[in-house]
Design a binder for these strands. Structure first.
Lengths: 235, 235
DNA sequence: ACCACAAACTTGTCTGATATGTGATGTCTG
DNA sequence: CAGACATCACATATCAGACAAGTTTGTGGT
């Protein structure tokens, strides 16, 4: 049969691809205005809806942004837009993989932090280590984020935030489990302090080692807490 | 003054946020069908265009997908959708930051690969080490990707591909520069072989060290090639 | 029981009308 | 002449109606 799949393709999709192609080819300059919707209609020979759909899709992808009453502009390269925030929960296997990535990345971050940290960076870390008023796992998150920030590498920071956000939704129960065991909380706090000390000393290798210890411990506890099992049951 | 910024907010954006909220709250099940556009119109009390715009935006973000004549479905968590492919070139500073991330990540990948590689994984690596027919930098890309694949961690693989894709567009000239210097090509090839040997031996520390050496060398050459300067001039 | 056709959904596209935000232009006033 | 202000042109945003096209479902005839 000569049933063409192409015929099922939406016009707006073709338009979106064509616009992407033109941007990639440099036909439209970065930060510059795209032709108006009606001009694009003539150019492609389609209705307004199709063009608007295409532009809306590109807007969702973060490739362009629309200013009402003004026009459509091409969004420039933006490190804060590198990662997709997915709404749904990752599976237990995904969490495991994600934690592997986190171990690799965050040990490296600790290393870099030990080299690049400023005194202000240390000050921020101290705030979240010794803070007892805030909820514990909020402090935990802020402490790890403070380390990432002292690398002064925006992409690393974004990536840490992304991983935290993705995991946070899934391992909320884990923190409750941990906080019922005061000895484990104490252990984590001491690990945090060791990491902090290594970064303060400016010793990359030790910072790496301490962070590795810490994350290994957390990983084991994470498994023990049966959180991952619960998630996979729900699926 | 009580001038409300909200008034400038687009209706379709509000609808999109509301749908996101409902998905996040679990009101709509993963993989299940959303109410039809006309139902959502009644539900939110807005026109079809607004709802359609909202759905199209969510489609662009990869949160839902639409089957014509059937309905709108919620896309499930997908590791291949974690990273945004941006069309525009990163700046010189972005490239530097990106390379830092790559060093952290890929040394960790080499470590993991040394632990988890199967014999098939080694076989694939060999193919791209000793392949002399293919274009050099294509082999280079495939070799590094093969290492990532032998971690058997899908997120790591996706991340490597993402970094490669983002950098490839910007450092195309770099490969031309390298290939005009046969001694440097030889050096890179020998570094590749050392990485391969370490992974074959199953020695994570040596794999880490060899990969680190390799990337340090590449980084220096990258700076020397003035590619980064050229990019920043263009901006 | 099975097959074919039709009906009843769905989304996709086009079109026209109206609302609203933005920028430029011209006009009026001090 | 300069600055405040009204106006106009043009952009997108939204709505509504009509029709096209795909999918599912049911129905009725064989």
């Amino acid at each position: 049969m000569n049933v063409e799949k192409i015929s099922t393709k939406k016009v707006s999709e073709s338009v979106a691809e064509e616009i992407e192609r033109l941007i990639k080819k440099g036909m439209f300059q970065e930060g510059e205005k795209l032709p108006s919707v009606r001009e694009l209609c003539e150019l492609f020979g389609v209705g307004r809806s199709a063009v608007r759909d295409a532009i809306t899709t590109l807007g969702g992808k973060g490739i362009v942004y629309v200013k009402r009453g003004e026009g459509t502009y091409i969004r420039e390269f933006d490190v804060s837009n590198l990662f997709n925030n997915q709404l749904l929960l990752p599976s237990a296997d995904d969490i495991k993989e994600l934690f592997q990535v986190r171990k690799i990345l965050e040990t490296g971050i600790a290393e870099k932090a030990a080299q690049n940290r400023s005194d202000q960076d240390l000050f921020v870390m101290e705030r979240y280590i010794f803070n007892s008023t805030e909820i514990k796992w909020e402090s935990d998150y802020h402490f790890h984020l403070a380390i990432a920030k002292s690398t002064h590498n925006e992409i690393l920071i974004q990536f840490m935030q992304f991983i935290s956000a993705t995991m946070k939704k899934a391992i909320n129960d884990f923190h409750h489990y941990i906080q019922k065991n005061p000895d484990k909380v104490k252990k984590i706090e001491s690990q945090h302090y060791q990491i902090y000390e290594a970064i303060k000393k400016g010793d990359p290798d030790e910072a790496h080692r301490m962070m590795s210890n810490h994350l290994d411990f957390v990983e084991v506890e994470l498994m023990k807490s049966h959180v991952l099992l619960k998630i996979s049951d729900e699926k």
